[in-house]
């Protein structure tokens, strides 16, 4: 078993122990998640009670997109989200010190140290939504899993880029707002917008790689030829953000003791 897999398993175990230690909090957050999912489904159903389609998207297609996004968002929240949001604090307080002195990829450790395992409910809700749409139109699950993994990596790289800015911007409290904008924008099919809003969203092109493009490929709305574009786009973002992380570390000034 590789070193990184062993570390990941240890971290998973510790986080599980920790979550169970505070079980009331665990249950409360779980219940909040269930309500949140129900609310999202109600909103989609309400929209489509007035119209058969939004742009080129039918209700069932939007549900596939929502389902895939829930998978990605669930996995992201479980393993990555709280860590990246905490990065500015780590940089400001000098908490990175001990981590950087260890023989382990700092990027790996910073990204996955803390887990929010109750977010598993978000992931499961994505599966439930996709199962429902599968009964209506049929889905290629291996294909869904493949594009969801790349969508997840796309989301990770975009957030990592912004989190890395905390090495240059002291007290980067804007990171949680940035996450709000990203997650709220990425969850919509970005091709439904027209006019100036579409132009505005074109600035956020990498977000297309998170869920719009994967969903369009899975639904056959776009040719399979777009799949290499998705893969290449995400890999390019991965290389870029990895390099940017290394560059950012050179600017780490630690906190004075």
């Amino acid at each position: 078993m590789s070193k990184y897999l062993r570390i990941f398993i240890s971290l998973l175990k510790y986080n599980l122990i920790r979550e169970m230690e505070f079980r009331k909090n665990f249950y409360l957050r779980l219940i909040t998640q269930v309500f949140f999912v129900i609310l999202q489904l109600v909103i989609v159903s309400t929209f489509f009670s007035f119209t058969d389609s939004i742009g080129s998207w039918t209700k069932n297609e939007v549900l596939v997109l929502v389902g895939i996004f829930r998978l990605i968002e669930g996995a992201f929240h479980m393993f990555i989200h709280s860590n990246l949001l905490y990065l500015p604090e780590m940089v400001n307080s000098g908490e990175m010190d001990l981590l950087l002195s260890k023989p382990v990829s700092s990027l790996f450790f910073v990204s996955i140290k803390q887990h929010q395992l109750y977010e598993f409910s978000t992931f499961i809700s994505g599966i439930v939504i996709l199962l429902y749409t599968h009964l209506i139109t049929g889905l290629n699950w291996a294909f869904v899993a493949f594009v969801a993994i790349f969508g997840f990596l796309g989301l990770y790289t975009i957030m990592l880029f912004f989190a890395s800015l905390s090495f240059f911007i002291p007290r980067m409290t804007a990171l949680s707002s940035i996450w709000d904008v990203i997650s709220k924008t990425a969850r919509f099919p970005l091709d439904i917008f027209t006019g100036p809003s579409r132009f505005g969203l074109s600035l956020a092109t990498p977000l297309v790689l998170v869920v719009t493009l994967p969903s369009q490929i899975v639904l056959g709305k776009l040719s399979l030829l777009y799949l290499p574009l998705e893969v290449a786009g995400v890999l390019a973002l991965l290389v870029f953000t990895h390099q940017f992380w290394a560059f950012s570390l050179r600017h780490y000034s630690s906190a004075s003791s």
């Binding site: 070193k3 570390i7 240890s10 510790y14 260890k102």
Partner: peptide, 12 residues
């Protein structure tokens, strides 16, 4: 002891 085990893995 859990942190020791994690360091054991990190330092191989």
């Amino acid at each position: 002891i859990e942190s020791f085990i994690l360091n054991k893995e990190i330092y191989e």
